[in-house]
Design a protein around this nucleic acid. Sequence first.
DNA 1: CTGTTAGCGCGTTCAT
DNA 2: ATGAACGCGCTAACAG
Lengths: 358, 358
Amino acid sequence: MVRSPRTRSTTERAHRAVTLQQVAEHAGVSIATASRALHGASGRAVGEELRSRVLAAAAELDYVSNAPAQALARSRSSTVGLIVHDITDPYFAELVAGVTRVARESELMVMLAATFRDPQLELEHLRRMRTQRADGLLLAGSGFTEPEFAARLAETLAGFAEEGGRVVCIGGHGVDADLVTVDHRYGAELAVAHLWELGHRRIGVVAGPAGLVTADQRLDGVRRALDARGARLAPRCVAAADFTRDGGHAATLELFTARPDLTAVLALNDCMAAGALSALRDGLGRAVPAEVSVVGFGGLPFTADLHPALTAVRLPVERIGSRAMELLLEPPEHQGARRIVELEVGLTVRASTGPAAG
Amino acid sequence: MVRSPRTRSTTERAHRAVTLQQVAEHAGVSIATASRALHGASGRAVGEELRSRVLAAAAELDYVSNAPAQALARSRSSTVGLIVHDITDPYFAELVAGVTRVARESELMVMLAATFRDPQLELEHLRRMRTQRADGLLLAGSGFTEPEFAARLAETLAGFAEEGGRVVCIGGHGVDADLVTVDHRYGAELAVAHLWELGHRRIGVVAGPAGLVTADQRLDGVRRALDARGARLAPRCVAAADFTRDGGHAATLELFTARPDLTAVLALNDCMAAGALSALRDGLGRAVPAEVSVVGFGGLPFTADLHPALTAVRLPVERIGSRAMELLLEPPEHQGARRIVELEVGLTVRASTGPAAG
DNA sequence: CTGTTAGCGCGTTCAT
DNA sequence: ATGAACGCGCTAACAG
């Protein structure tokens, strides 16, 4: 069985890896038997005798199966795509941890891509995931409300689904796909209720960029919670900025410039809350919580080490990630029905909130 | 050209994706021409006329190339593997950010895996990356000094390299591969020098688990820095624990139980430093920096928001990640020569260090 | 239980 | 410049 010695382009791999073919020859069996012995599927079991001979041969030759070839033959890549906004945000890091944990247990590879909240980039990554023929897609980024983007996203996802790919969204999306989320509005309600009970009536909101579903939901929750108490969220009581620490810092300065009389600020994510604390302390010279109370959103571990320790809406982030991955794996029972998993939110009260100043 | 209608197993993708074949037919050209028009390689250029017809057909049919098939045909997967210890550690998150940024620019997919500092898991992931025929491997985890593991690691990497895969390590490894790192010893030296100048003579070290190359190097740096000043690092002045926030907390308690007279503690990573601060404040009731000074290692953004703001050895983490990815892409000029890129470390002095108490 | 064989979708020689 | 045909490594029918 002579192998035709085609010349190789320089970009090609230097030496070929051991193939199933070689294992089969080495074990003196057919290639099919080798495949079955190694993966135990199709055509039922293999005789004990041959099975062990194949395994021995594989071990001896240091055989490593070729996933791309398997993917081609089975039209399943054993790979899932995970798209996040910003991995340096502990929220997404934790999410990724949850996803990868389940993925490993299921012997799936995770392809990671970050959008940095750029819709264009998101579409680009999506396309790339399609190219890779990912078996599934976890969308933790996205959530842009901009209509044209939403349309293109829906289109791309439809294409992906049509080819048999599964999609699970994390956090609110305008997309018709399975969803793992929390009740962001209720979370905001918890935060407002807490502040309200402490006597706060002038509450500012450090918000994320407009046009992100999750951010909008949280803000909406604040609004409704205040409405329910006969209060109103004045426009000047909301400052929007990047969903980052520095964004939170800037937004807080802006907020207190417009409304120096605020007694509490609710940041719509943990990173922004960290920025808010810093702005209040170093930029504005307001004591927390003596003069101003601060609440975060997420409640990730690092918020316990902020100063003062942050009161925050608690999201089960690792669970969100792992549940999303699980959902991707469980075949949907009812064809076509959109599955929605809503996990619980809570409030972790720590030192950054206190009674409203006189 | 009748397509044999094989029945599909249920695990297979529902509907086939558009193939190059179909694009070619739709454009009325051969499959080879379609391929060339779409990727512009091999057999030189394609006539303007046909080229645009192919492009139009591809767009019309929403053609998305099949990466596994390409990988099989070209023996290149356009995929790199990235192995980290713990993504929830901001250090690794930042590293991942650097890697993915460059990967995107180079149109490469990144497969992420986390070891949680389990050598077994690391080997398992490595194998999986081989299976995927990753073009390259970025090893940010690993760094275990345990001989048997090192041997198996070397073996696996050798196999990977033999098949044409490239490997770049991040941080010290006992592995003979290209390396991007910093001078951890010098970083430790900076920290010790800083504390020494402030008058500290009884310095404790909150160390990571033994058997990690990086941790060992940092500890060694401390040792040498103290030696150079005629001091000694007593065994009881070193407490080891997990490289995590809680590990740092526990180790600090242990440290001060054994040596209540310490005036400074150097944590060998940022997370542990966060734990140290918490232990000193809440567990031990020692004021920082009035009674005890604390230095971290990494200097990631979040350390600025700790209380007090952390003095830390500053590592260019994002750069480390991006340089590693770049190194993976640059073909080595001198065959066989191991490339080592060493990036600069510095010291960020903030509020957690001060003069040694009386 | 085991072997034979036909594709999976694409890149790439080799003719034309 | 274009097309025909082979093979990449593997899975899954099908035949024994």
